[in-house]
Nucleic acid binder design. Structure first.
Lengths: 224, 224, 224, 224
DNA sequence: TATGAATGAGGATTCATTCAT
DNA sequence: TATGAATGAATCCTCATTCAT
């Protein structure tokens, strides 16, 4: 599949720019599969196709690599969502749907979806990473979702709910879906397919939000 | 041969049968706080007030102790719920409420609530433990909750929903609550109090289940 | 030579009290032979007849062991000298002679004599150890020697000399003797035997101290 | 392809012949500061302003560089002394004085004075270097000093002493002065200034050598 | 000639497990 | 049964050395 190497393939080639990403990718896979402590740097190096020492050219130590894995794989997902929220002009229910389904489409099949599991498992051991994740990911995600819910409420599309508390509840099933895939994936045959799970989730959430008297409030009818 | 014991040895002196329980209790705390790999048996022994060697009198090895911790702290919770479901005679909404609030009251402030976090983190490394937990805890919990939802639907109290998929979604926020407390507890000041979270959760769930035409009678149509 | 072991000799025996000393002795030998960095803890353990892990039962790490080696082998030598000075009643020249020859007899054939070499080599890398050695060994030795010289001067046995500066000079050849033995021992065939070296040293020192007009009486003039 | 160089590139640009010298100078500093093992070639390269690979263009390996450092910084000092001895026409006491003070003036403030410390520390690990240093430096220095002492004795200026043994003793304080500066420099505030130390040294040495009956022997009165 | 990315052997350290007491 | 000293395999990390560029 690769371009065929020259006859005398060198022991190694220099690819300074590519290496960090490759290492992070390899580390992500292994951290997600085995957890932080059970992941040997030897294995990370092997999977990245480099030697053990090379890791230390780009990362100070195991912890530093771990943090790089988290930091490097976490923001893109959010940005995608925030962009969508910013520019969406349909109904809020549709926005929720697209947000949720798009998120899963983007990361569901990826190891990136295993990061929440990692964070949950290691938050206690890496307090500053926990704080980073909490502030830069969780709070932002909550904030984004909160805005979406408010949008629906203000438009009279959703009933009046305590948005601040609800967002936590509403996001939980999504996090769990990601977590689940990377812990019980093996032995859960009973688990519904993610698509069904998400459908059920959206059904539940939107039902619970539906305004029984959708008196058009405000001027906020950005109907498509 | 031994030094003669005091004549009136207190009846409640540490019975030798209590040892395993004490060890398990100590191990539970540490596993939940630090995770499996970061927990040293030295520390478990110290917290249990025994010597390191003693652990091996009761447990084959660290993994065995880990499994004992999980197995020993997981069934009581379920049984409580199942008993409640079996004997409840009020409305299904009330049953849901009591189930959820009772569960949290029972375990919320306990380290037991940290077990899901542990399982999530280590499922990949201990497949048989994962299977045990999945079969004996998750499936039973799902089954129990499913029965409750069916009860409501059949009574016409809840609308017709795809119960089999919904239970997964419906349980997720509860698991997340338990998980959260033992990972981001430290740095989340924004997190709502569990009571508010659960209230919001019940509000959402029950709203989404409410039957808009609750005229139907009991023992009614199990429509496909 | 040892007591014959039982037929089935145990893999190890427990000798908590003896171990630290044995380890320090083994470490002293190797540190002196090879220097700090070139000494592998594996080798220390092997020479002490214990396993690698055992070292860490008694010492925090390599540096800690190093410091223990220095601290544990340094004070006895001084104490011996100080005791002698305190109680000596002969001429000051004889005191100097006994001090010097006794010191060498005590430590000359020992690895302890290699400690100055170690300290000299590693002072820069272990500043706190250097300070300890400086304060607790060097300053005390200087102080002791200074007292001896003053004793001779005040008795009119030695000429008036700038004692404070002289002690440094006077001790140097002794330190060098110890250092030499553990660096150029191998290749120096030309080196005089320690006995001859010390004889020459004493001859030089005492000659240079001899008072040309030794008529003065005791408890005499502390001329400025 | 490169940016065009300035038209008049300075003639005294770093000649390639200078490279080894610069590397040796950088290595000398670091070896003296930290010792052989604790000196990283990375740091040597950095201080020399070259890349790590460049070291290997000029030196086979770390050991080779170490030897070059020693060999390259050791002979000049001797030669200066030998020249002085050869041509000196004053009294032997003056010769001793000039030799000693000149030596310190020449190297005292230099890292070169740290080489004895290095050799002492590493002699055991580099036997051939030790032999080289012993034969080419120590023996030569002893020989030179021995000639000076003989000169004084033969001239009747110094008393009859066992010169062969004395030289070792007599050189020791000088070596120690050099060694000291590069180990306890930091924490020795009590240490006398080198000038005072040397004055005291010369006072002691020359006092001990003074001939009480300076019967002019031989024809050897090269008085100034 | 010069560079510095890549290598990998080597060593310090940890900790689950064993076993003499 | 209980102890905790002793073990040694496992793993992180360093740094001298190599080599593609």
């Amino acid at each position: 599949m690769n371009a065929p190497r020259e006859k005398s393939q060198p022991r190694w080639t220099r690819r300074k720019d590519a290496r960090p990403e490759e290492i992070i990718a390899a580390a992500l896979e292994l951290f997600v599969e085995r957890g932080y402590a059970s992941t040997r740097l030897d294995d990370v190096a092997a999977r990245a196709g480099v030697s053990k020492g090379t890791l230390y050219l780009y990362f100070e130590n195991k912890e530093d690599l771990f943090k790089a894995v988290v930091r490097g794989n976490v923001l893109p997902v959010l940005q995608h969502g925030e962009l969508l929220v910013e520019n969406f002009s349909g109904s809020s229910a549709d926005l929720v749907r697209q947000l949720v389904l798009g998120w899963w489409e983007l990361t569901g099949s990826t190891k990136v979806a295993g990061i929440p599991k990692l964070i949950i498992a290691e938050a206690g051991n890496f307090p500053d990473l926990a704080r980073f994740y909490h502030d830069e990911v969780i709070l932002r995600a909550l904030s984004m979702f909160r805005r979406v819910l408010r949008r629906g409420v203000e438009a009279g599309e959703f009933r009046e709910v305590g948005v601040d508390n609800l967002v936590h509840v509403a996001l939980a099933p999504l996090v769990m879906l990601a977590v689940w895939r990377h812990s019980f994936a093996c032995c859960s045959r009973e688990q519904p397919e993610p698509e069904n799970y998400l459908e059920s989730y959206l059904d539940m959430l939107l039902h619970s939000l539906r305004n029984p008297q959708p008196t058009e409030k405000k001027h906020a009818r950005k109907k498509k």
